[in-house]
Simulated assay, not measured.
Amino acid sequence: MSRYTFSVTGMHCTSCGLLIDETLEDLPGVTRSQTSVRAGRTVVDLDEALCAPAQVAAAITAVGYPAQPEVS
C-alpha cells in the first residue's frame, strides 16, 4: 500500500471534493481518498498491484478536474 498526493485544479466547493473521493473509492486498489478543496489536493491510499497512480489522475481528470501526481 502506498500513499500518493495529487494536485487538483478547478475545484470550487465541498461537492467537488466529494465527487472526486467517491469516484476514486470506486477504483480497484484505492482504499482511501481524501480531497481538500482549499489545498487543491487529493491524498490517496493505493495498492499499486491493482491501480497505477496514472489511473487515479486520469479518473480525477475524467470527472472534470485536471490532476497530476505531486513529486516529493
Rank of each mutant, 00 (worst) to 15 (best):
G29P: 04
E22Y: 07
T5L: 07
G17L: 07
S36W: 12
R41E: 06
M11G: 07
M11H: 06
T35E: 01
S72D: 15
A58R: 11
L19T: 09
P66H: 10
A52I: 04
V30L: 05
T61L: 03
T14Q: 15
D26C: 14
D45L: 13
V63I: 14
A59D: 08
V44K: 00
G10F: 07
S2V: 09
V71F: 05
A57M: 06
Q34C: 05
R32Y: 09
E22S: 12
T61Q: 10
C51R: 10
V71P: 02
D47P: 05
Y65G: 03
V8R: 03
G64T: 12
L24N: 09
D26E: 15
A67G: 04
G17K: 11
H12N: 15
C51Y: 01
G29T: 01
V30C: 03
H12A: 10
F6Q: 00
F6C: 01
L27P: 00
F6A: 00
Q55G: 04
I60F: 07
C51T: 07
A59L: 10
F6G: 00
V37Q: 07
G64N: 12
T31E: 14
Y65Q: 06
S2R: 14
S36L: 14
R3C: 08
D21M: 11
A39H: 14
V63A: 09
S7N: 15
C51S: 10
P28E: 12
V43F: 03
V71H: 09
P66T: 09
V37C: 08
H12P: 11
G64F: 13
E48F: 10
I20W: 06
S15M: 14
T31N: 11
